[in-house]
Design a protein around this nucleic acid. Sequence first.
DNA 1: AAAACATGCAACCGCGTTTCA
DNA 2: TTGAAACGCGGTTGCATGTTT
Length: 323
Amino acid sequence: MGRPPCCDKIGVKKGPWTPEEDIMLVSFIQEHGPGNWRSVPSSTGLLRCSKSCRLRWTNYLRPGIKRGNFTDHEEKMIIHLQALLGNRWAAIASYLPQRTDNDIKNYWNTHMKKKLKKIQNQDGVSNSVSEPKGQWERRLQTDIHLAKQALCEALSLDKSSSSLTVTDSSKPYQTQELSSPTTYASSAENIAKLLENWMKKSPKVLKSHQTNSDMAANSSSSTDAAHSAAATPENQGFDSLFSFNSSSNSSQSVDENANLTPETSLFRDENMVVEVNHHHHDDQNNNQVPLSLLEKWLFDEGAVQGHEDLINMSLAETGVGLF
DNA sequence: AAAACATGCAACCGCGTTTCA
DNA sequence: TTGAAACGCGGTTGCATGTTT
């Protein structure tokens, strides 16, 4: 008597997303912002469950995502953080703002496991990466540090009069701004790039998409639009479609987003932003009572150090010593 | 050239947690 | 207070692509 899968309803489409669907989803998010996923399928007409929409956005369409080619630094971060936190991919991803948890998980399961196994075989020592001794203690300590950091940043948020810039305390290395329609621009670039790649594939791909019965309703017009748009170097069709605020960064490629701006990093945790956006004043009013005690606790042990310090501490503690 | 096998990654599934009526 | 719905996360799968035989 398990829970029925949310996507088992009749008429809910599964499988790879088409460019048309991506456009529909991004268009909706441009207007309404991310979050409130349950209303997305009905509002957009997408034949997808809300879960699928959220996943597509967070793992693929969200601006600021860097794909492929993990750098040495990122790789080391992942190894150390995995040793420290275990398979808490979302937590690990919070230290790598341009990477999604799914991406990191995939990278770990494919590249890293292999690499580490190789290294372990070379050393002839069973390493502690998978489940190091005392991991629970380290995990607990890390969580405490993160919690302190979150509180610290919440306090500074409350104290600052600025309502434009907030920091998601659970997402290190990031700054965030209030959500506005203009911040969704780079999604268009993501899609444009996707479409380019999509069109580069053999025509059979296109054909397979077109023959999909689920697309029958709107294939004639939208597929043509995608085709013509992707067929031109400038993706003109989509330029017009995504003409909103494309001037500020339209020349950037997805990879160039590697230098994450506050604008793009906004999407690291959309719900949090929306939350802040809507309830910032409420927070200021409602959270004051317990903070004095928390402040005391925080500052008794000294100011919470920066994220770098946390990482360094964690890395020193892990003693993985792979590099 | 083609079959078999390996790899990488997007997407799905199940379940614990949170939210809300 | 409670139960249903939604959210979020980690594990897993399926398929397209690349490599080897």
